[in-house]
Each structure stands twice: as structure tokens, then as C-alpha cells.
Design a protein around this nucleic acid. Structure first.
Lengths: 235, 235
DNA sequence: GTGCAACCCTGACGCGGGGTCAAGGTCAAG
DNA sequence: CTTGACCTTGACCCCGCGTCAGGGTTGCAC
């Protein structure tokens, strides 16, 4: 007769696991001796080994019992299902590995390389780090909301670097970041921006939802910018 | 200003997840409006997307915060550690897939093919299914306790099929299974077994622990066998 | 006899990443 | 005024055990 510890040792599992299997109904509760200890016979070792073998093979405990008493065909079906599940989990983990590799390569910016390049061009232009961060945040939002549009947006942005007037406006906005919202220079800047916008043909890339989000972010970044946005939006 | 639902939608996560991130301290709790609703700004969207990106890449939530504020080097180290963990988990799952494939191939016997073949030989010899099952259980125990000895044990067993006297004894034991323990034929059988054993050289293959377990199993299978064992063990 | 280590018992919490009620308060539209 | 879609907190659930906590038992040495 075996105690639970010796049973567990024979099967290569922990005592806690044996009790867990009892609780799940996988392994029958044996007789108790006078002091309440469980007493096992050799057949229990075999039962336990079979359970352990299943568990080690990735069979969910909930299905172990069913499988132990299944016929050939059900058994094969169940095994196929479990294997499919294991494959799916491996696939998920593999995807995660790809993602984390991208993260590591993305220089902690959580952005694809071409967007990082855009931000570099802005820095090279003389834009302040503060504004670059706001721009980065907007790219993060755009990437999350319309990843399929991202390449196009990057292309448009890169093309915009050749628009000297736009670049002048961009740098002016950068400087305007911490002006007083009542500063009269904002009115002129807004007028210049409206004039520039009037010469552009419309290309509504991101959805209105995303647009609102981006605007909200700009607005919240600086009181001067908030004023600027309202001036530009006014008729 | 965004409600929690709209924030979650913008980042592509569930409302429950956002609240969970608050609870874990990953995402700062925002202001509440007059009725207690959380009110988010666009910056929260960026924060949330960064968290989600990490989580999707398999970063444990407990390390997300640390990583968001880590420097280049720590970041790289942490990413390497996480990737190693992902690889380990993939390896474990792959091992499970191999194991379950073996299970499926093993005809639900949880035993390697050569042992299955031994059992087949016994059946062919005319041994009852009942006894084959006892034998199978003993192989399961031996396989679990000393897997490294298994090939040798199988070889010895296969060789034993050529020992005509042993086979006669084996079949006699099979028949004796449900004799009355007081049956006088058991005494003769035990004597024959002792005589056979005396002619054999010792080869103590499995450990004494396993030996005791196997004996216990035989003893528990049939009262007649229990008697037989005690007769053989007696001086 | 007594001390001590090594067992055994039940019960309960913890992990990770949230899902899923429950029981109510709030808001916008018709 | 109602309806349905939101929001709030709180609590339990999943899986496969690990790990206490707070006891009782056994066996061996002194």
C-alpha cells in the first residue's frame, strides 16, 4: 500500500497534482486508513501514469477522462482537435515573436521604419523635439486606426517636404507652440495657413473619426495651437 | 473628450481591458465628469495603443510599464528575455505535439511500439485478455520508472518466448488466475516456478522499488496469484 | 519518553489577462 | 416618457496546479 507521496513519486508528479486530479474527478479517491491518510494500490499508479501521459501531451484535464474511455475513432478525432489547438497556440506565439522583433527593430517608437524616417526629416528641418513628439503621437494613432492607409500617408507627407511654403508654416507653428493664445501673430499665421489650404486640392485621407482625434490631440498640446485651430476653422 | 468605450474602440481593445490596465497601473486614471464617467484626451489613445502593442507582442503586463520608460539598452535586454521566454513556450508546445502524435500512433496504449508487439505475442500465445492487461499495466509502470531500461527489458522478454518451460508456466498462471486460493494445484505450480527460477541466473533489472510495485500489482490482481507469490517467496 | 524531521490532511489564495454577469446610474434620440 | 446604448463598481470564472496556513501522524534517534 502506498501513501500519496510515494504514489506521486512513482508516477513522477507532485502530491498537489494528485490531489488536484482527485478533485477534478480524474483519479478515483482511494480508501483512507485509520488516520485519514489515502492508501493506494499499484493500479492507481497505472491510472496516474496514464493521466500524466495525457497531461504531458497537452491534453486539457477536462478531456483526459473522456479520452481514457474513448473508442478508437473518438480518440483519433479528439487527438486531432487537441493537436490543432496546439498548432494554433504555436502560431500565436510565433506571431508574437515577429511582433516583438519588430518592436526591437523599431527603436522603441512602435512605428514602422518609414514613419521613423519622416520624423528624422522633421528633426533635420529644425523642428523642436516637443513638436516631433506630437507628430509621432499622431502617427501612432493613424497607424492604429488605418494601417492600410499608412504607406499612402507617408508618401504624401514625404512629398510635402518639397512644398517650401508648407515647411515655412510648419516651422512657424513649431515656434508658435508656447505663444500666448492672445498673440496677434497667430491671426496672421492662421490666415497664411488658410491661404495655403485654399490652394490645395482636397484629399481626405483618414476618416472623420481619426481626424477629430488628431485635432483633439493638437488642440490639447498647446493653448496657442488651440487658438490657431479655431481661427483656421472659422469661416 | 472621449468616453472609455470610444477610447477602447480607437485603440482596438475592449472596455474591460482598459479598466484592467487602470487597475494594473499601466494607464493613468483620467479625470471624471460630473456623473463619474472617465473622460480621456487624445494622449490617452496614444498611451493605450503603446500598451496594446506591447501586449500583442507577448510582453507580460507586469513588464509593460517598465519597458515603456526604459532606455535603449534595458529595452533591448528585456526584449531579448521576453523573446527567449516565447521561444521556450513554443518549444514546450512543440514537444507536446510530438508526444500527442506518439499517443495517437501508440493505439491508446501509452506504450512504445515494441512493448505493444510483446503484448501481441502474448495474445498469440493464447494468454487471456485479462492477464494481458495485467502485463500491460506492469509495462506502463516499468516504462514510467526506468525508461532507460526499457529496450533491454523488452529484449529479455522477447528472448523468453523461446523458453518452452517458462511459456508453459506463464499459461498455467493465466489459467490459475481465478482458482480458489486454497486450490492444491497452486502448490505444484509454485514448486515448478521455483524450480525454473533456480535454473536461471539472476538478472535484477528493475530497482527494488519497482519490483515491489510490480509484485503488489500481481498480488492485488487475483487471490490465487497472491497465494502463488507467497508460496514462491517462502523458503 | 521525548524530540524532531518528514509525512499527511483540508482549505484557501495566487497567477495572467481579462470575460462575463449583476445591479444599478446616465445620456441621447424618438 | 421610454428605450437602448452607454457608463459605474464589484465579484466570480477560466487552467493547472504552487504555495502558504494551521493543523495531525508516523517513524526514527536519543
Amino acid at each position: 500500500m502506498l501513501t500519496i507521496g510515494r504514489l506521486a513519486a512513482h508516477a513522477g508528479v507532485t502530491v498537489r497534482a494528485v490531489r488536484h486530479y482527485h478533485q477534478r474527478g480524474l483519479l478515483a479517491e482511494p480508501e483512507r486508513d485509520s488516520s485519514g491518510y489515502r492508501r493506494y494500490d499499484a493500479a492507481a499508479v497505472v491510472d496516474l501514469i496514464r493521466i500524466k501521459t495525457m497531461a504531458d501531451a497537452g491534453v486539457p484535464l477536462a478531456r483526459v477522462d473522456e479520452l481514457l474511455h474513448a473508442g478508437q475513432e473518438e480518440f483519433a478525432d479528439a487527438v486531432a482537435a487537441i493537436d490543432a489547438d496546439l498548432r494554433a497556440r504555436i502560431r500565436d506565439l510565433t506571431r508574437q515573436r515577429r511582433r516583438i522583433a519588430e518592436l526591437a527593430g523599431g527603436e522603441r517608437l512602435f512605428l514602422p521604419a518609414d514613419v521613423v524616417a519622416v520624423l528624422e526629416r522633421l528633426r533635420a528641418l529644425g523642428v523642436s523635439e516637443r513638436t516631433v513628439r506630437v507628430e509621432r503621437d499622431m502617427w501612432i494613432m493613424m497607424a492604429a486606426q488605418s494601417p492600410e492607409l499608412l504607406p499612402e500617408l507617408v508618401a504624401v507627407k514625404n512629398a510635402s517636404f518639397d512644398d517650401a511654403e508648407l515647411m515655412r508654416l510648419y516651422l512657424a507653428c513649431d515656434e508658435a507652440f508656447d505663444w500666448d493664445p492672445g498673440d496677434p501673430r497667430l491671426v496672421r499665421l492662421a490666415a497664411d495657413m488658410k491661404a495655403w489650404a485654399a490652394r490645395q486640392q482636397e484629399h481626405e485621407d483618414v476618416g472623420p473619426d481619426t481626424r477629430a482625434l488628431l485635432d483633439a490631440h493638437l488642440t490639447a498640446s498647446s493653448p496657442a495651437w488651440e487658438r490657431l485651430m479655431s481661427l483656421v476653422a472659422a469661416p
